[in-house]
Design a protein around this nucleic acid. Structure first.
Length: 307
RNA sequence: GCCUUGGUAGCUCAGUCGGUAGAGCAGGGGACUGAAAAUCCCCGUGUCGGUGGUUCAAUUCCGCCCCAAGGCA
């Protein structure tokens, strides 16, 4: 049976460093579960592990797409399952390190994505335009008609989810609610989470944003724009990139842009916490503990005795 | 020293023609199945600067005091 260790925690909580320590102690290869680190040329704003920091530990699913190439949860799930297999075959332990909770959940719960309906930008744009000028709830009423079960779980204001549900129905003929299920992989899994005092977390976030500025976030975004990667691309709407683009086009002062990055990152961290707060499978480690590395490694050893 | 304008939620401010007050932001909680660092939902009691007075009733009107900003000297 394949083993899989997973490390989760909000942004700036210290996942990267802890992952390296665990990997060295337990002979791991790291699989990145971060929806922004898939993209090349986006290093500073995503706080991507540098080659130096990797200390020779293999890292997967980093720098695998250009910013204008799509890479979805379903793609990730497929790649991650494959990697878990391969790494186990090498006699090593895969360590999934995730900031993007949806992606990690897709792995550990085995989300079953609808087969024939990958995202279709054309459809989405057309749907969004169709709703312009219509009464509120226009798209939601369409969804109620074709997939009431999905509609019941989606807010009438949440147009992105409404459009996706309509997309699945119209492209496949099968309601989203009838396709979305779970099929967890038969792995022996250990799930570790980093817990940090909220005020401390927010201080770390502010500090990290300042460091990104010193490290040249502005130039990184300038280069992306110069390469032709515009603000409409998904990864360019990520934290740091969106606000810096607004600064570079003169819509924000530098100070306002930096303040917004900090604020939006705090909001993001808060949302990340919501995903895991009541997840009983997580074994929480205190970020303030001086022995966190040893605690992490020994917990994994204890849960996966045969590694 | 005098004049003016302010002092209301953590911040910026609105408001009460006298019946103890509400927005935005911050902050908190939640949802999440092919955009997810995205998207969306819910949560507002605070000596209304202090102190006297008028009044059945003052955060609101009046006096004095304190603080801040601007102006005149």
């Amino acid at each position: 049976m394949n083993n899989l260790a997973i490390l989760i925690g909000p942004t700036a909580s210290g996942k990267t460093a802890l992952a390296i320590a665990i990997a060295k102690a337990l002979n791991c290869e790291v699989i990145s579960g971060d929806s922004m680190q898939f993209y090349r040329h986006m290093d500073i704003g995503t706080a991507k592990v540098t080659p130096w920091e990797q200390e020779g530990i293999p890292h997967h699913l980093i720098d695998i797409r250009n910013p204008d190439e799509s890479y979805t949860v379903a793609d990730f799930q497929k790649d991650c399952y494959r990697l878990v297999e391969e790494i186990n075959q090498r006699g090593k332990l895969p360590l999934l390190v995730g900031g993007t909770a949806l992606y990690v959940k897709a792995i550990i719960d085995g989300y079953t994505f609808s087969r024939e309906t990958p995202g279709n930008d054309g459809f989405r744009r057309a749907k969004a335009e169709e709703a312009v000028g219509q009464a509120p709830g226009y798209l939601y009423r369409q969804l109620l008609a074709v997939d009431p079960a999905a509609a019941a779980r989606i807010s009438p204001e949440d147009n992105k989810r409404i459009i996706r549900a309509l997309e699945v129905y119209e492209k496949s003929g099968v309601p989203l609610s009838a396709q979305a299920g779970k099929n967890p992989p038969p792995y022996r899994m250990v799930l570790l989470g980093i817990r940090m005092d909220r005020a401390e977390l927010y201080r770390k976030i502010d500090q990290r944003v300042e460091e990104m500025m010193v490290n040249g976030l502005e130039n990184e975004v300038k280069n992306l724009l110069a390469m032709g990667y515009g603000r409409n691309l998904k990864p360019m709407q990520g934290l740091g990139y969106r606000q810096m683009t607004a600064y570079l086009t003169g819509e924000l002062s530098l100070k306002d842009a930096v303040d917004l990055i900090k604020r939006d990152t705090r909001h993001f961290a808060k949302r990340q916490l919501t995903w895991w707060r009541r997840e009983e499978r997580v074994h929480w480690l205190d970020a303030a503990s001086p022995n966190i590395k040893e605690e992490a490694a020994s917990y994994i050893r204890q849960q996966l005795p045969e590694i």
